[in-house]
Amino acid sequence: MKVLTANRLTDGEVVFWRGGHWVERFADAEIFAADDPAGQGAEAVALGQPTVVVEPYLIDIAEGPAGVAPVSYRERIRALGPTNEPEHGKQAEGGAAIEALLAATGAARSTGRVDLIRRK
C-alpha cells in the first residue's frame, strides 16, 4: 500500500494526498493499493502543483499492530513530529491514529525518498 506525501510550500507542513487535495493528518490520507496506477496518477498531478507543495513522493505503508503506518521510521517521524519533543508536531494531537503510528515498529528505507533522490 502507498500514500502520497509532500511538504506544503508556504509553511513546510507535512501533507498527504486525499482525493485531489492535501490533508495534514496521516490518518486522513488516501491509501493506494501498491499496484494501483492511481497512486502514480496522483503523484503526477502533485508534481504539477509547484506553488502548493514541494517534492511530492509516494511512500510505502503497512498494517501495524494498531493500524496502518509508514514502513520507514523516517516517514513515521514526518507523520508524527520529532521524538525528542512529544508536544511538537502532529503527534501533539494524540488519539488512536497517533497511537497507531507510535506503535508501529517495522523499519525499512523510505523507498519513495530513495526514488526522489535518484530522480534528481
Binding site: 511538504n7 509553511d11 513546510g12 507535512v14 509547484p50 514541494v54 517534492e55 514526518r78 508536531g89
Partner: peptide, 22 residues
C-alpha cells in the same frame, strides 16, 4: 520561479526545507 531556482536563493539565506517545516 521554480523550486530548483529558489532553492539556491533560500539556502544562501540559511533557509532549509526540513522534515516538519522550514
Amino acid at each position: 520561479i521554480t523550486e530548483d531556482q529558489f532553492k539556491q536563493m533560500r539556502l544562501m539565506n540559511g533557509l532549509y526545507l526540513q522534515l516538519h517545516a522550514y
